[in-house]
Design a binder for these strands. Sequence first.
DNA 1: GCTATTTTTACACTCGACGTAAATTTACGT
DNA 2: ACGTAAATTTACGTCGAGTGTAAAAATAGC
Lengths: 218, 218
Amino acid sequence: MSDDSAGTSPRPTGLREAKKQETRQHISDQATRLFLAQGFDATTIAEIADAARVSKKTVTNYFARKEDLALDRQDAFVATLASAVAARRPGESALGALRRAFEGSLAAHDPVTGFTGAEFARMAAESPTLTHCVRGLHDRREEALAEALAEAGGAPGGDATARTVAGLLGAVHRVLFGRIQHLTLAGYAAWEIERLVAPEGARAFDLLEPSLGRLYVA
Amino acid sequence: MSDDSAGTSPRPTGLREAKKQETRQHISDQATRLFLAQGFDATTIAEIADAARVSKKTVTNYFARKEDLALDRQDAFVATLASAVAARRPGESALGALRRAFEGSLAAHDPVTGFTGAEFARMAAESPTLTHCVRGLHDRREEALAEALAEAGGAPGGDATARTVAGLLGAVHRVLFGRIQHLTLAGYAAWEIERLVAPEGARAFDLLEPSLGRLYVA
DNA sequence: GCTATTTTTACACTCGACGTAAATTTACGT
DNA sequence: ACGTAAATTTACGTCGAGTGTAAAAATAGC
């Protein structure tokens, strides 16, 4: 909840708020730099604090968990699938909307589809902690999608069906995400990956069409 | 390496091996008891060691991570889906085999399908650490399934298709697992859960039939 | 400038995880 | 049965993430 102009909550004055964001960004930048340079696990919070010239406590104050220092825009990532379904066109199924969303993100080389850059991909792949965290984000994304589907209606069976369909659609996006990350690690350029993955995505969405094409149609 | 009497593996003599298993089981039992009594996170390794009357190091020696003390038969769980596909009948699709496997496990109230008992379900739900770990097991299970599908053949598109289909089939089992866990937490008895979830499972597998029913047929 | 609030810091602490070398237990040849 | 070699267990130290607390510093509002 963010109140703007007129405050129910005491609206912290400009400079304080600005400095907070500045400090947060500075810490995040230093952390990212160190993570990419020497790996996630090999970088300690003390090092990050030292690089950012703040105390350890300030770091863990802004970022509750170490992983939060490496993963940016988590909420945006989590919301993508649910948003795509909520914004589907009249007559378009959830499957169709998520297909369009994937194709758009693929063409845009969007990080939420797996285009995270080779350095990040290497860092994530080398750290079990980070890998688990990314998996958690995929799960939250799937849950958000399930809620969006349940709210949208358009299929018999209620929440149970919504969760199942969200699992299926989430799985497709998750697998394609992993594929893009894998190809990134293998050294392919973004445009090459786009050309390689596009037909795989098409095949996957085609595959689901007979099962899901008539569900959750707006 | 000292090979003695017989054996490809150095076959440590009987008593030593027996005592090891005994100690391991004893530690696991004490850990389980404490976890169920006071929760996973609220139980320290030191307490477990104390209860089992061994040193902390012995505990972390047998169980590399704390979660391993709570999760039993991980490899068996991971293998279930891949095994079901490998053992599918002639003319049976992977979807059909996994449907049979689910129905059998559901009727048997098998832990691998989510019948873990109310105490365990509560413990797992209350501990983020444990929840993440269970998610990791689902992922390993999906990966094993993908390998089994790729090895089995029976679909165009090679590994990419295998991974996608494994994602879909894994998602169904995972969602149903979660549903059973949820109902367990809500206080339903196993036989009630069986009656509630059976039609949901049927609906989910029916849903996928038009898409996957003709793939990976033995 | 003064005061109240917020942010940052220093310090201490818990816990999981890892490493090492000594002490204990078990196995086996003689 | 005894002694030696091997494995197991233990005690001890270390590291790093994460938390709590109260003092110190910075900022807001008057």
